[in-house]
């Protein structure tokens, strides 16, 4: 599903240049649930941004679902993001004046799905994350865990190939974090490919594979026995 080869990325800051990714190679198959671990500043978000076509690498190859991702125009990148990817952010990034339902429907809007169909689909995904009764509520009326569930529903609404989550539990207490991980596991059980960036061991162990980043390279990449989050909920 995802294949990257010798990926390099550095940030220029004045005359200095910060080499963040120093040759990353890895492959993600369909249906995987991968944790990307590493200490703060190790380049996890940078990697995820490149995978999400929000940023571009300096060199290296990136193929997503057989499509080479290279020199994309803004418009093309937007189209690919819309079609291939779903994003889940640490701070949820819901649009505060739109109801839960409208937030979930937004990727469908950019897919030019007709309004009625959009609403129905969005409702289906809200139901999936257990928030159907909250459809008409604004984000400000929801708890942190609920917000993240809305965000997950939104990420899934466009039916992307890959879900990218950057510290999805970073802003949540541990109980709520497990609820969110439980949801992510269940979505993965349905066959969705998910990448989760985290620096928390327990969250990482709820995935099926851990990729460890350090000083811009992958120092460890191992399959693990998944810890089910359900038992902590």
């Amino acid at each position: 599903m995802i294949e990257i080869k010798d990926l390099h990325k550095s940030y220029k800051m004045g005359s200095n240049s910060l080499h963040v990714l120093k040759g990353i190679n890895f492959k993600v198959e369909e249906g995987e649930l991968v944790a990307i671990m590493g200490s703060s500043g190790s380049g996890k978000s940078t990697l995820l941004n490149i995978l999400g076509m929000l940023d571009s690498a300096d060199s290296g190859e990136y193929t997503l679902d057989g499509v080479p991702i290279k020199n994309l125009s803004e418009t093309k990148a937007a189209q690919y993001r819309n079609k291939f990817l779903g994003f889940i952010f640490q701070s949820f990034n819901l649009i505060n004046y739109k109801s839960a339902l409208e937030n979930v429907a937004l990727p469908l809007y950019y897919q030019k799905v007709p309004r009625k169909e959009r609403q129905e689909k969005a409702m289906k995904y809200l139901e999936r994350v257990g928030l159907k009764p909250w459809a008409d509520h604004l984000p400000s009326e929801l708890s942190g865990g609920q917000k993240q569930r809305v965000a997950i529903a939104r990420a899934m609404a466009g039916e992307p190939k890959v879900l990218l989550a950057d510290e999805p539990t970073g802003a949540l207490d541990s109980k709520t974090s497990y609820e969110v991980m439980d949801l992510i596991q269940k979505i993965n059980d349905d066959g969705n490919t998910i990448l989760v960036v985290t620096h928390e061991e327990d969250i990482a162990h709820m995935c099926k594979r851990i990729v460890h980043l350090k000083d811009g390279v992958i120092v460890e990449d191992k399959k693990i026995e998944q810890v089910r989050a359900e038992q902590y909920v």
């Binding site: 937007a78 189209q79 993001r81 952010f89 937004l106 939104r154």
Partner: peptide, 15 residues
Amino acid sequence: KEIGVRKALGARPRQ
């Protein structure tokens, strides 16, 4: 930030 989110969700520059 909102515009960034929209773009991440697939909003084209034109839109």
